[in-house]
């Protein structure tokens, strides 16, 4: 099976993916993980706000809004 590596920003609404890894500094990684955004979790995109606005994602039925810059450092795999 081929896993396609993407960042969170590449996902469209209703698309699901598995989080592979986080890229970025220690502080960023800790901050993101402490909000429940962890490697191995299944993430679903609920909506993308227009004009570069934040992406709303759902993990474990809990929704979080995250800016695109941060989202682009979250690497996911689809399929």
């Amino acid at each position: 099976m081929i896993h396609l590596e993407l960042t969170l920003t590449n996902l469209q609404p209703k698309q699901k993916a598995r989080i592979l890894r986080l890229e970025g500094g220690f502080g960023f990684q800790k901050n993101v993980r402490s909000r429940g955004i962890l490697e191995g979790k299944i993430v679903e995109v609920i909506t993308r706000q227009p004009i570069g606005g934040p992406i709303v994602i759902s993990i474990d039925k809990r929704n979080t809004a995250i800016g695109r810059g941060m989202a682009s450092r979250i690497i996911v795999a689809v399929g």
Partner: peptide, 10 residues
């Protein structure tokens, strides 16, 4: 100006 990173509670 950091980005939004906000939990949306039920």
């Amino acid at each position: 100006s950091p980005e939004l990173f906000l939990e949306i509670p039920p």
